[in-house]
């Protein structure tokens, strides 16, 4: 139901609210929801809307900081880079949860997930001297509070 509602929102955003559109909208939403359920089984954990909102804000904030961070480094005449790989031991189970986590953290300043090794997620960092692991842990905690609070 939640998914159908979100697809309805997407349709309304795209096409607007028009009574003549109802059949098309119904087909679109039904097809999308069916596909979505087919591709991704619904998870059973409780969600907290407040925490999701906080996560979204955090996410936006991070992407802004990340952009400024990269911009600063790129425009700095000395090009302050200390690139390297960092392994982060995630507590999240492999699969969708970890994917959500890596996707979010790919927008953290200075990190891009680059695969996994021995159960650790490997991150490529622009500057390994930054406290990358702490940031990642904080992010993970926020994510768990928002979506996967079993």
């Amino acid at each position: 139901m939640f998914r159908a509602a979100s697809f309805l929102c997407l349709w309304l955003v795209l096409a607007g609210a028009n009574p003549g559109d109802i059949p098309a909208a119904a087909v679109a939403i039904a097809a999308a929801t069916w596909t979505s359920l087919h591709l991704l089984e619904p998870s059973s954990s409780r969600r907290s809307l407040v925490a999701i909102a906080r996560l979204a804000l955090l996410f936006l904030y991070h992407s802004v900081v990340a952009g400024i961070d990269v911009a600063g480094r790129a425009l700095n005449p000395r090009l302050p880079l200390h690139p390297g790989f960092v392994a982060y031991p995630s507590r999240l189970s492999r699969g969708v949860r970890q994917n959500v986590f890596t996707t979010l953290t790919s927008l953290l300043p200075g990190t891009v997930p680059a695969g996994e090794e021995n159960g650790h997620i490997v991150y490529h960092c622009l500057d390994v001297t930054q406290p990358v692991l702490d940031d990642l842990a904080a992010e993970e905690a926020a994510l768990v509070r928002a979506l996967y609070n079993d």
């Binding site: 992407s63 802004v64 990340a66 952009g67 400024i68 961070d69 990269v70 911009a71 790129a74 880079l81 690139p83 790919s106 927008l107 300043p109 200075g110 891009v112 680059a114 490529h124 622009l126």
Partner: peptide, 13 residues
């Protein structure tokens, strides 16, 4: 990889 950072982060912003 560093160029990848530049591309995804700065351009998205």
């Amino acid at each position: 990889l560093t160029r990848l950072h530049a591309l995804t982060k700065a351009d998205n912003l």
